[in-house]
Design a protein around this nucleic acid. Sequence first.
DNA 1: CCCTGATTCGC
DNA 2: GCGAATCAGG
Length: 149
Amino acid sequence: MEWTEEAIAKLRSLWAEGLSTAEIGRRLNISKNAVVGKAHRLNLPPRPSPIRRHEGEAAIARPVVPKRVQGATLPPLSASMSVPMPALRAMIPAVKFSQRATPCCWPIGEPGKPSFHFCNASAVTGKPYCEEHAAIAYVRVRDRREDAA
DNA sequence: CCCTGATTCGC
DNA sequence: GCGAATCAGG
């Protein structure tokens, strides 16, 4: 890419208009890397980017407390699931539970996804799930020693 | 997996 | 100086 004054002027203009680097690249028929690279070299005002490299350094005193159960692996939520997941309950720091009306911790959605959440309906006392989910949580998987294929 | 911007590094 | 590769967050 030959960075003529004109090309640089366009870059500056488009950059100032708030176009994304990729978009500027498209308009100038160059790659977004070329755009961001040049912009960087021109000391153009950086655009909002949450990215920060060098996470290993500086030993930032970040507790990094998991929001909820980030990264927790869950067994398939099939009807054959016979083991409850009380561990999940323990992973919810914000929710304190005395004895009553424990929110059902039946997982809904995929862990890690923003949409992931818990059922949170009133759980059966002594159980981590509400009536509805306890019913399917404690289904005994049929003994398949004999009749399994 | 798509988007984003930033930095690195061989050229 | 350039920008693809790579990184990193949304």
